[in-house]
Design a protein around this nucleic acid. Structure first.
Length: 434
RNA sequence: CGGGGCGUGGCGCAGCCUGGUAGCGCGCGUGUUUUGGGUACACGAGGCCGCCGGUUCGAGUCCGGCCGCCCCGACCA
């Protein structure tokens, strides 16, 4: 993208309504604009980040054998009456009526819907297990939206639903999702820790929430240093091996980790390498058995011919919340520091002297080679303004092209995270980044 | 939902107490200047002062109602 003709409205001053770092930076870097309390429009740069995060989530869900689908945002009240949640859910649920006076709702989650869809087609235990997910906008009418996209009313969420014949199978599905989550967060450049959690309004008795470490996080966390050292991406654990998943689960639950609410001073005393920090919840997984399959009449024929209610679980990741959470975990005074995996562009090309024939030509040729993966700052701005905006927007790399070096085919490469700047020939810079 | 605060050019704010024709900084446009960390100067564009009603000769300012947004708390992916 050429910055001169792009909607990336960066702000020098801090908007009055934004209190926390990620919210301020998302507004200042031109990622989002608020359109109503807790509701945001995603501008081009912000959407690219949202899409990048969604793609990593998608790849890891697929790798774990989950199937992507897409369910609607609007649901019928009828469906929610079958589980009893239409009345139970409370004012957090946004309720609507269509022109015929029928009760509808903007979905806060999709257990009823997936159960309904699943029961109409799946009739035999031979078709289990299955896991279905979608990445869709949800709405929860929070009493008090705040912290920008971290606690919005409308939010993008990945939610998956597993169906197994019995408890033993459901536990394997649950552990598999846990592994997928740890891999997802690692790829997003985050340190994540699963913590035993209350199952909340969704119900059930096996539940973990995933906290990512960020200095400005909402709650204090206490954990074993082991969590900082684990690598989930190699082939130490396979999604296809129940034994691997059991070992993985033991690793995750064997070390101490708790938020301040559940902190246990006694158990904490025994932890060899203690770590304290702050964290943000970005995911939550539940096993809830037959809570929905039973009342909603989802059953399949078992091996003995008798019908059984499948055991279910649901698994959420707050995709839009992650944008804010990543910024909370990765920023400095100058702006955002995007991890390479989610940056809107791999690099920004800073033309320090737009209009200079040598600089222009060099930048154009660089820009073409990136094939859409670079943001070209071709504005008629001063060098200082371009540096400031590039730092604010957090591009992992800046390719600085100035008249000084351009004449001899030299550019400067700046790594946003470290601040390190190295001058090198154009080809060397390209080789490093492409 | 309880408590508090704020709505004035795109952004950040002053003006309101003590009514009298709307101002500052940034940003934006034009020109000159400058040219590797938000350059300087000049000129210029841009405002139903959140909305509705009331008081008054006159309302951004006073009174009433409404709407919106933010903060603290309770609550949550």
């Amino acid at each position: 993208m050429r910055l001169s003709h792009s909607l990336v409205p960066t702000l020098k001053e801090i908007p009055a309504e934004a209190q926390i770092a990620s919210h301020r930076l998302m507004l200042r870097a031109g990622l989002v604009r608020q359109t109503a309390a807790g509701i945001y429009a995603w501008l081009p740069a912000g959407l690219r980040v949202l899409t990048a995060i969604g793609q990593i989530v998608r790849e890891e869900q697929n790798a774990a054998g989950a199937q992507e689908m897409l369910m609607p945002t609007i649901q019928s009240a009828e469906l929610w009456r079958t589980s009893g949640r239409y009345d139970a859910y409370g004012p957090e649920m946004l309720r609507l009526k269509d022109r015929h006076g029928r009760d509808l709702l903007y979905g806060p989650t999709n257990e009823e819907m997936i159960t309904d869809i699943f029961r109409s087609s799946v009739k035999s235990y031979r078709e289990l297990p299955q896991n279905l997910y979608h990445i869709q906008w949800k709405f929860r009418d929070e009493v008090r939206p705040r912290f920008g996209v971290m606690r919005g009313r409308e939010f993008l969420m990945k939610d998956a639903y597993s169906f197994d014949l019995d408890y033993e199978g459901a536990v394997v599905s649950y552990r598999r999702m846990m592994l997928a989550y740890m891999r997802t967060f690692q790829r997003l450049g985050l340190k994540a820790i699963p913590m035993a959690a209350e199952s909340g309004p969704i119900g059930g008795n096996l539940s973990h929430e995933f906290i990512i470490l960020a200095p400005t996080g909402e709650s204090a966390v206490y954990y074993d240093a082991a969590f900082e050292k684990n690598d989930y991406m190699g082939d130490a654990f396979s999604h296809d091996s129940p034994a691997d998943l059991e070992r993985f689960f033991a690793l995750m639950t064997g070390s101490y980790a708790a938020t301040d609410e559940k902190h246990d001073a006694g158990a904490w005393a025994d932890v060899a390498e203690k770590r304290e920090g702050r964290g943000i919840e970005v995911g939550h997984i539940f096993y809830f058995g037959t809570k929905y399959s039973e009342p909603m009449g989802l059953s399949v024929a078992g091996p003995d011919g008798r019908s059984v209610a499948p055991h279910m679980g649901s698994y959420g990741i707050g995709v839009s919340r992650l944008v804010g959470a990543i910024i909370e975990a990765s920023h400095d005074e100058a702006g955002i520091i995007w991890p390479d995996s989610v940056a809107p562009w791999r690099a920004a090309i800073l033309n320090l002297k737009s209009g200079d024939a040598t600089c222009d030509a060099l930048c154009e040729s660089l820009y073409a080679k990136f094939a859409g993966q670079a943001l070209y700052d071709d504005r008629a701005e001063r060098a200082g303004a371009k540096f400031a905006d590039a730092d604010l927007m957090g591009h992992p790399w800046q390719i600085i092209v100035g008249p000084r070096g351009a004449a001899t085919g030299m550019v400067e490469l700046k790594r946003r995270a470290s601040g390190e700047r190295v001058e090198m020939p154009v080809d060397a810079a390209l080789a490093k980044l492409l």
